[in-house]
Each structure stands twice: as structure tokens, then as C-alpha cells.
Design a protein around this nucleic acid. Structure first.
Lengths: 181, 181
DNA sequence: GTGGACATGTAAAACGTTACATGATTGA
DNA sequence: TCAATCATGTAACGTTTTACATGTCCAC
């Protein structure tokens, strides 16, 4: 039920197509949400049917038509109402931590490799968040002020990745100690 | 697809009923997974049908019978094989951060209240994780060694909560500055 | 001429949530 | 006597994932 409000939020900031939205999910809210293109298209259809979104088709030379969605007044009202309610609980799903939890089935080398792979991924994530952050810091100060809260969510994402990376590095050090296990 | 391995992992450490499992999810892996009792029962039935779990009914005075599940050899083998594979990507779902992302629909007071509520929840979570940690540190050193990797996942959960709490406190300070926004 | 980005969709399967259903025991 | 805990389940519904499907343009 939260996906629809994530969609409304991004379209409230700037209208766009399903395809656009998918990329914007990856680029700007990946630190707290993700969704496939199929989820986008279905949600866009539903929101349109319910009158929360307007749709204008924009013909493009060579490429398929783009369906540009934007919030209706009712859409903006629905988003505003939801934003002011207590949020549904967060959901954490970390398959990697299940694997460590069952880590008595891993050799020390396997555990090291597994942690190292995750560490690489989290470092790449941190880099991409830092890049986003740079973009924000070099953007129009008026926009920065308007979307100050949105920017704070990115800073949380950055700190979360740093925490993960520190933990991963500590793990590798501990797994490298010859007396351990 | 990961739920089944979370179930196998917990039953591998100690056999138990669906009801037991549900509580163990809440008590020992809530920092990276959660599931309802219906999910447990359905998954247990499936795993039993597929021959990965054994089931023995244990009559109890007064209470309904307990169905105690434990891993078969094939179950243990399936878990071991999965644990050694690259894990599926983690899924982050944080409705609260969507609300902040759409925070231009919030007054400063509403934002403060919202952050404060989340902060309270995360402090409670941290407390419960620290309590779990204390229990581990006072348990049999042999068990501590055996489940050393499992314990490390809890330490990550603790650090993640601390990061969140620091961020929330910083947010409240910034939202309290009269020049902000 | 091949692979990637653009652009949208259907269908089925798997997974997750909510509501409903039962029934005993224990403690306030 | 009321609510909580123990213990298991069905049914319906909603969400998410995976596979299939199509077609253009552009750069290498």
C-alpha cells in the first residue's frame, strides 16, 4: 500500500512516465524503496483509474509514445493526507544475514568471501549515494531548501552504508585472526 | 524464497513448532527478518511435503498438540547448499522515509512529531537488541563460539539502530533551529 | 548486426496480509 | 469474567516477482 504513495511523491516533485519513474526509483529513493517496472505500470494504471493521476500522451519521433503522468488535485490531497498519518512499519529483508545466521555451515574462507562480496556492494552503494549528495549540494539553493527533508533521507542512507561498511571491515579483521573459531 | 531458509536455519539450531518459530523470529532474527504465523505454518507444511522437515506430534496436557519440526538430512543439505550461494538482494521498505521525502506537505511541527515517534520506536528496538546481546554474553561460551557468526548479525542490528537514533536526534536539533526552512 | 537504452504491456506464480475460526489454560 | 498466552489452521485478497512479449533507435 506504500508503493502508491512513493509513486505519487515522485510524480508530485516532477511528472513523468512509468519508465522515467523506474529510473528515478533507482536513482533517488533506492536507499529506502525499490520496485520493478511492472509494479510501476500497474500502479500508474490504478492511480489513473481512481482519478489521482492525469495522463497525457506525448508522441516522440522514432520512440514509442510516452505517457506522462501528473497528480490531479485529488492525487495531491490523497498524498498529503497519507503523509500526515503514522507510517506502516518498516520491513527488513536481508537474505545475507540469514546466511550468516546459519554460518556454522560455512568454512572460514567461505565466510570471508561472503562478507567481502557484500562489502564491495555496500561500498559501491555508498559511492552512488555520495555522488547523489554532491549533485544536491551543487543544485539551486531554493530547491535545496524546498526538498530539505528529502535530502535528509539521503544522509540517513549514507550513514547506514557507512555503518554497514565499518561492521564488514571489523568482521574481516576478526575472521582473519588465527585464534577465532 | 528466503523465508524457507530462515525457517530451516532456526529449526537447524533447535527444532520447534510453528508457534515456537514465530516467537523465535521476533526474538532472535527481527533485526533482519519478520513473518506472520500464517507464513510459518504454510512454509512448514510445504517443507514437510517436500521432505526437508520431519514432524512429530507431541501431546500436551491441557494444551493443543504441538507439531515439532526438525530438519531431515535433505533439509540440512538444502540449507547448506543455499547458505553457500550468493544471497538475493536485500529489500528495503521504509514508508516513513517516503513520508519525509514528500515532506513539503508537512509543517515543521508535524515533521518534528513524526521524527520523534520514529525515534522512540528505534530506541525501544535498540533496547531489545541490547537485552538480547546481554543474554548471549552470559550464555555458555561453547554456544557463543558455535554461533559466533549469528551473534555478529545482532551486533550489526545494534549499530544500525544507533546510526538511526543519531540521525533522528540530529534531525530534531536541526528542525528546532529557528532559521531552518 | 548486436547489444543496450527507450517504452509499454500481459500472465502466472510466489509471497504476504487480513479476517475468520477454534478451543483450553492461566492470571488479574 | 476478561484478556492474554498457547496452539493450529482455512480462505480471500493484495503485492511482488518472474517470465514472456513487442518494437524502435543508436552506437560500436
Amino acid at each position: 500500500m506504500s508503493l502508491r504513495y512513493a509513486v505519487l511523491t515522485l510524480l508530485d516533485i516532477e511528472p513523468g512516465s512509468g519508465y522515467d519513474l523506474k529510473r528515478r526509483f533507482e536513482r533517488s529513493v533506492s536507499h529506502f524503496w525499490s520496485a520493478s517496472h511492472q509494479q510501476m505500470y500497474r500502479e500508474l494504471h490504478r492511480l489513473h483509474d481512481e482519478g489521482l493521476l492525469d495522463c497525457t500522451e506525448q508522441p516522440q519521433a522514432g520512440k514509442p509514445d510516452k505517457k506522462i503522468y501528473s497528480l490531479t488535485d485529488r492525487g495531491r490531497e490523497a498524498l498529503r493526507a497519507w503523509v500526515q498519518q503514522p507510517p506502516p512499519a518498516q520491513k527488513i529483508r536481508e537474505p545475507f544475514l540469514i546466511q550468516l545466521f546459519a554460518g556454522h555451515h560455512l568454512s572460514r574462507e567461505q565466510a570471508q568471501d561472503a562478507v567481502q562480496r557484500q562489502l564491495d556492494q555496500h561500498r559501491a552503494l555508498l559511492d552512488s549515494y555520495l555522488e547523489q549528495n554532491e549533485k544536491v549540494l551543487h543544485s539551486d539553493p531554493k530547491l535545496q531548501e524546498q526538498y530539505w527533508l528529502a535530502h535528509q533521507t539521503l544522509l540517513l542512507g549514507i550513514e547506514a552504508e557507512r555503518t554497514w561498511i565499518e561492521w564488514g571491515e571489523k568482521m574481516l579483521r576478526k575472521l582473519g585472526e588465527p585464534d577465532k573459531q
